[in-house]
């Protein structure tokens, strides 16, 4: 009898202990955890979020070099950036939110939207991938929209993919007219076409302008400066006289 009672008491104590620790793990254990785990990538699946469908479409149009290594892992941060930080398997809500903000601003045509300098000041690595995808999705005639994306991505380029993107932008074929980039239209009155030249080359001019700013800030011997010089060198062979001339001027200065 005594033995039975003792066994029952132990079982009750064990059950109580088990129930306590089970409820504790999701909340307290993680919140008191001071450092994130060392794993660079987790392939754990999540419930799909509201933002994911648009990101799926963006991922589908991403350049082949940015195609996901694993199905569903299209927000994977390149290994060079991921050391010591936990990475979610599904797109970060911040990236989706930043893309949504960008799309709102582009639709409004308000270049003075303060979110350009707040919400979109620092882009997450996932957002950068989405923005590059957005750039490729946009028709080439959307000069300001494309240039805005170039501006945002070139404000503080960090990864090799960022710099490769800028070199790609400055090397693009020139847009021949605002109506249709593939077709030149004869100029009727250059007097009244103020700003057309620059607008046709706007994404490229933005990339060069930002490269110039980065060189002035970082110096040409820094890693950033060297990459900026590579962007400028890539622009020197542009088929756009305006872009090539600007690149030549910058090459001469730096």
């Amino acid at each position: 009898m005594k033995k039975t009672a003792a066994i029952v008491a132990v079982l009750i104590a064990l059950a109580a202990w088990w129930a306590t620790t089970r409820r504790q793990a999701p909340g307290v254990a993680r919140l008191v955890q001071l450092t994130p785990p060392d794993s660079a990538f987790s392939a754990r699946s999540r419930k799909p979020s509201r933002a994911e469908p648009s990101q799926s479409r963006a991922a589908e149009t991403a350049a082949p070099s940015e195609a996901p290594a694993h199905p569903g892992a299209y927000s994977q941060v390149p290994p060079s950036q991921s050391a010591g930080r936990p990475i979610k398997a599904s797109p970060a809500p911040d990236a989706a939110a930043q893309l949504h903000t960008l799309e709102e601003i582009l639709a409004s045509k308000n270049d003075n939207d303060p979110r350009l300098d707040s919400d979109l000041k620092t882009l997450t690595p996932q957002a950068r991938i989405l923005f590059r995808g957005k750039y490729r999705q946009l028709p080439t005639e959307r000069r300001n929209e494309r240039g805005t994306i170039v501006f945002l991505l070139s404000r503080n380029p960090t990864s090799p993919e960022d710099w490769a993107f800028l070199r790609q932008v400055v090397g693009e074929s020139p847009c021949l007219s605002l109506d249709d980039c593939s077709r030149e239209e004869k100029s009727h009155d250059p007097h009244r076409e103020l700003g057309v030249d620059v607008t046709l080359a706007y994404p490229q001019m933005v990339a060069l302008n930002q490269a110039e700013q980065l060189l002035e800030k970082s110096g040409k011997t820094s890693a950033t400066g060297q990459e900026a010089l590579r962007v400028i060198q890539s622009a020197r062979t542009s088929q756009s006289p305006l872009v090539a001339r600007k690149a030549a001027e910058l090459s001469g200065r730096f």
Binding site: A25, P26, Q33, P36, P37, S39, A89
Partner: peptide, 11 residues
């Protein structure tokens, strides 16, 4: 929080 991946503190 309880449903989030356990190894992802940032969430």
């Amino acid at each position: 929080l309880r449903d989030a991946p356990h190894d992802d503190l940032s969430a």
